[in-house]
């Protein structure tokens, strides 16, 4: 809901993402702060931001597939892996520039995702969601068993750093700008997708696929598209990951990683791009807190008592996710929206 006094007077203005001047100002400030971050905060924070932005790209893709189109996807880490491997192989064998490898990584992951999405023509409901787990196992099997000259097998692949006009993206801050640019494009694209014809088709299919079909939406194609877009995002995120870590191995893309991506969008809120970003932020922050305060706690508790504390940290993470789903099944974004609208319509209750 808009603040009072703001009325869209045309379809164009009704579709706007940035609706008021204050919103525009907040956005500019936020982006400006992020851009200046490498000059303001330490390398540790920049490294955390790098990891968050990469996760954000992948989680936003999952949000489109699961949150908007309603297709539970437990293969997002495998799709990310396909992207990471594509980028690594192209970069290390052909020396292609990252300007091409990143989109190509997205495309190859999209193709892999589309294959699973295609089964949507026949498979429905949970059956479809669960076939995405198969993607995870097949990816793992393929990497380890295809000739190791193809995908590196158990050796993994070492990735040369991204380079542009002789500038090597090695330091945290240079990688930050690479990730920032790609993440901005991808997130802006996501806003575009979800308010386009595709996005509305996604929501229609999620809410009721039979009704959507009657309204003239090609349900199977829409589901396949959802997987395609979700996987494209995962592939781009995977390519960024490859350029950040510069070593890819099949154990970086497991089912457990997929589950955590799902957890991120749950915490943030289903069906909201900003929600996906918030979910990434919260889960990564909790993980960083565990990693940061952990050793200090270990020092203060007696010997061998430490493992109990740390196991407790994992419970905290699981507990946060489970609690969110019980108390706030619609995610943090939902709560925020309620707060926002009650502020705007105050003093009226509705």
């Amino acid at each position: 809901m808009d603040p009072s006094g703001v009325f869209p007077t045309s379809y164009r203005s009704d579709r706007r993402i940035v609706r008021t001047r204050w919103q525009a100002l907040a956005l500019v400030l936020f982006m400006g702060l992020l851009l200046a971050a490498p000059y303001l905060v330490s390398g540790r924070i920049i490294a955390i931001l790098n990891m968050m932005m990469i996760s954000a790209v992948i989680a936003v893709g999952l949000q489109i597939c699961t949150g908007y189109a309603g297709q539970i996807n437990l293969g997002q880490a495998a799709f990310m892996g396909v992207g990471a491997y594509t980028a690594s192989i192209l970069a290390s064998k052909t020396g292609l520039t990252f300007l091409l490898t990143i989109p190509l990584a997205g495309l190859s992951a999209a193709l892999f995702g589309f294959l699973f999405g295609l089964t949507a023509a026949r498979i429905k409901g949970f059956y479809l969601a669960l076939t995405t787990i198969a993607a995870q196992f097949l990816f793992h099997f393929a990497v380890l068993n295809l000739p190791s000259t193809w995908l590196g097998g158990s050796n993994g692949i070492t990735v040369p750093p991204a380079e542009l006009f002789g500038l090597r993206f090695v330091s945290e801050s240079s990688q930050f700008y690479l990730n920032f640019a790609v993440t901005t494009i991808m997130v802006a694209g996501a806003f575009g997708i979800v308010r386009s014809r595709f996005g509305r088709a996604f929501v229609a299919v999620r809410d009721d696929d039979v009704a959507a079909g009657i309204m003239g939406i090609n349900v199977a194609a829409t589901k396949a598209n959802a997987f395609l877009i979700g996987a494209f995002y995962a592939g781009v995120g995977g390519a960024l990951w490859a350029y950040l870590i510069r070593f890819v191995g099949v154990d970086q893309f497991t089912l457990f990683h997929s589950i955590f991506f799902v957890a991120m969008i749950i915490v943030g809120g289903m069906g909201s791009i900003v929600g996906a970003l918030i979910g990434v932020f919260i889960i990564r922050i909790i993980q960083e807190i565990i990693a940061t305060v952990g050793p200090n706690i270990a020092d203060s508790v007696s010997f061998l008592g430490g493992d109990i504390v740390f196991a407790g940290m994992n419970v905290v993470l699981g507990g946060v996710i489970a609690l969110f789903m019980i108390l706030e099944p619609k995610g943090l974004m939902h709560r925020w929206n309620i707060l926002k609208s009650s502020y705007r319509i105050w003093p009226f209750p509705h």
Binding site: S42, G43, R44, I46, A47, I48, N50, M51, E172, L244, I245, Q252, Q287, E288, I290, A291, T292, G294, P295, A298, D299, F310
Partner: peptide, 23 residues
């Protein structure tokens, strides 16, 4: 010496490393 908690996760190591270096 100082212990850093990695959770046995490559992503965590990568995000800790710049901090380890500067600290």
């Amino acid at each position: 010496y100082k212990n850093y908690e990695t959770r046995y996760d490559a992503a965590q190591v990568a995000s800790l490393w710049p901090g380890i270096k500067s600290e």
